[in-house]
Amino acid sequence: MAGFLPKSGAESTGYRGLVGPLLLPTWVMVGVFLVIPVALMAIYSFLTKEFRGGVIWDFTLAAYDQFFFNRGLFGDEPPSIEWTYIAIFWRSVWQAGVATLLCLAVGFPTAWFIATRPAAQRGVWLFLVTVPYWVNLLIRTVSLKFLLRDNGPLNGSLMSLGLIDGPLPLVNTDLAVQLGLFYSYLPFMVLPIYAAVERYNFALSEAAADLYASRWVTLREIVLPVVRPGIVAGCILVFVPSLGAFLAPDLLGGAKTFMIGSLIDEQFKGSQGNWPFGAAVSMILMTLVMIVLILYARAQAKAERRS
């Protein structure tokens, strides 16, 4: 017991020897939950597929080749670019982008509203924002499908109001997937923006108005630039998981709204799966996200150096 307590004077340097052991849990966590899984995925992406799922330990680039090149049905034609998977990637980026913009459009005013309530009320509002997220994501997504389907309450009430004649085809559309993603990740937008707006000094808005800026100009020139770090954090937190999401596209989208998450999911299911290909798609997705984040971090660091 005594050995764990820092001692006074020169002996307190013994405290430094504890840093290694104290960091051990962190290293174990990073190793077990980050390094090993990613390494496994990287290795698997270079293996040969076994027809009933699983892998054969023969190193090959076949999975990546399948992603980028089309060599015909029997693999003997000259390679041309395979657009199928690139199209799925592009659609995923688009869907995640629209969902992020939806989250921003709703999340910013929500966060602003909460941050401008009296301090005692803010906790209650934040709590209310998070309440739906205590329910399992799968249940929530299925419920959304129920709401949107042809004979569901949304179409039903629109028809009984006489606004539409027949049910709007909402399920199995891009919109349904975007709504699903929006609903899944909205709090990830609200919370960081709330944190930024809560720290915002409203005297800055007064100063802008005092210097002849209208409300709109004040928002554009002062408020948004000052709370930008919160907005960027919110966008990253929504965009990245949306990109790889598979529940919303699976349940709310149709064949035309296939996204990366579903593509990867498929590779690990049943006898049709292709583990090395699934791993390769995951690696490509991760690389894409890393490139975006690194570019952003660079731009940020550059802006900070300049100032």
Partner: peptide, 13 residues
């Protein structure tokens, strides 16, 4: 009219 604020309220960016 223009104002000099107590804590200056300079635009930080």
């Amino acid at each position: 009219v223009n104002t000099v604020f107590q804590h200056y309220a300079l635009f930080p960016h």
